[in-house]
Design a protein around this nucleic acid. Structure first.
Lengths: 226, 226
DNA sequence: ATCAATCGTGAACAGATTGTGAAGTGGATG
DNA sequence: CATCCACTTCACAATCTGTTCACGATTGAT
């Protein structure tokens, strides 16, 4: 279920938004000031933020900037001001849509749905991971080595994606297992070895002398960097 | 042509609205009390309702509630009161916009246009979707495989359309369910399997070896790409 | 150079995921 | 009110994947 963070200092409005969004099937968290909004954005990793521009102390634009330094989460802005310049600034900072108060909660829901639609099935934004001749197309769950298409299982794909997001960084088997299994049941570390074996068989030209997925003796694995 | 129902007990105001809205190209019906408004809303199925809150006998909010039990028609509210709480109540009940008396008829027209624009914009999507030998004529709800016409149910059509809009992208059963059921009631993921089975039976030459709708083990389904 | 620890690998197993026909449900239609 | 059709749910079989195991190969330290 999608999680939405609603930020507005006017409690009634915030709760109104929450009610409508929850009825539309979203999970909603509320924040009444910029500082809370930031910490919630960091800890809860919402899928979308509904943000009032006219917050006390910390302005909505500041919040936007701060959030943007850390994530690409879509933002729908609310504002009482109607000046065109605000719109431009807001959109430049990465707002995905814009509503002027007073607005109808139904329209808010419609906008939120539209944003999710654009993101979920829109012209897939750059959700591609590249490193050293290997390309991962995340929404398509497709891997390419050079021009050669490689079919991977979802676990193999997750594993490879995790390592490729930070090429050169060494991951322990425990970290890799957590990424794959959502840190649930405990399994043997050697399970990772098996996946690495299969990965290498599928994407290395010579699985005996790996070029991409390298072993770091006594620690774990890493994707080659540079 | 769009039809609009204007509800106001003050005859002069109602007629003023009618004149302006008709000049703007809409077809207008008038009602001077809540009861008439309700029955007209039921029989004429207007595309939008302009509703005065300060009606005698049956309050505008009551009318709104009653209308909402039956339809989702957009409502633009008029009111003499300017209190913020009224605004909120109105919006809570599902008004799409709000005007305070006295208002300029020109502004009313502008708001009405804006509401229609927001609605019509909708999920602007292509009328025809093509991918890999399959063609969907969306407005006609017609599917073709090569030259062969295939009859699909609306759910099957929606499902196929969702996947074909982004060939190759993998969709989870949850995403597909949302697209089909408007992310309302929860149903079993396996319902999607059943639809996929029926889809394949109808459009695959050999349903046991699908060419178009492919399974991605552990994730969901995708329409073949390229 | 030797040795204990670590890693690679193939095969076998267990468990989860999917395909499918049939039965059940609900709303639309006449 | 009866019928039909689409959608959902259920149960079981078929399939695929992830994990484990055992053993040989490799590594790094003494």
């Amino acid at each position: 279920m999608k999680q939405i963070l609603v930020v507005d200092d006017e409690v009634r409005i915030a709760e109104l938004c929450r009610d409508y969004l929850e009825r539309a099937g979203y999970q909603v968290t509320l924040a009444y000031n910029g500082a809370d909004a930031l910490s919630l954005a960091r800890t809860r990793h919402p899928d979308l933020i509904v943000l009032d521009l006219g917050l006390p102390h910390m302005d909505g634009l500041e919040v936007t900037r701060a959030v943007r330094t850390q994530s690409n989460v879509p933002i729908v802005m609310l504002t009482a001001r109607v000046e065109e310049s605000d719109k431009l600034v807001g959109l430049e900072l990465g707002a995905d849509d814009y509503l002027t108060k007073p607005f109808s909660p139904r329209e808010l829901v419609a906008r939120v749905r539209a944003v999710f639609r654009r993101i979920d099935l829109g012209p897939a934004r750059a959700d591609v991971i590249r490193a050293a001749d290997v390309t991962l197309d995340v929404p398509r769950m497709q891997a390419k080595v050079g021009r050669r298409l490689v079919a991977l299982t979802s676990t193999e794909f997750e594993l490879l994606a995790m390592m490729m997001r930070q090429p050169g960084r060494v991951f322990t088997r425990g970290q890799l297992l957590d990424a794959v299994r959502g840190e649930q049941g405990e399994s043997f570390d050697r399970a990772i070895d098996a996946h690495v074996k299969n990965l290498r068989r599928k994407l290395e030209p010579d699985p005996r002398n790996p070029r991409y997925v390298l072993t770091v003796y006594g620690v774990g694995y890493k994707f080659v960097d540079a």
